[in-house]
């Protein structure tokens, strides 16, 4: 199995990150509902839902592909909100 760094792949994409405003926010349950968080670790195509060595959860909306996977899976459990980024922000597919 080859080692894979999805961040390196995402770095090839064109993103206009809105540093001021997070369009996806986890709620407090995200820390404790590990089975819910695990779903997102498996299914997020951008691999944005991670755990560090100590098992603490990590999430950064900056590389979001705006697919909606996390919304469908955990919109009612561990997501505080899921919105589209504000106009002009977010992923910009040059080829798509």
């Amino acid at each position: 199995m080859s080692t894979m760094n999805v961040d390196a792949k995402l770095s090839l994409n064109k993103f206009y990150v809105n540093e001021e405003y997070a369009h996806i926010v986890l709620n407090r349950n995200a820390e404790t509902e590990s089975s819910e968080f695990r779903k997102l670790m498996l299914a997020c195509p951008a691999g944005l839902y991670k755990q560090d060595d100590k098992g603490r959860i990590l999430f950064d909306y900056a590389g979001c592909l705006e697919c909606g996977t996390c919304r469908i899976l955990c919109g009612k459990t561990i997501l505080e909100k899921w919105e589209f980024p504000q106009g002009t922000f977010g992923i910009e597919y040059r080829w798509g």
Partner: peptide, 20 residues
């Protein structure tokens, strides 16, 4: 989605393994 979350491999890893 409903089946992916029952598995062991994350989607980005599935993609990488498919490539190889």
């Amino acid at each position: 989605l409903s089946d992916l979350i029952k598995g062991q491999k994350a989607l980005p890893q599935l993609m990488e393994d498919f490539k190889t």
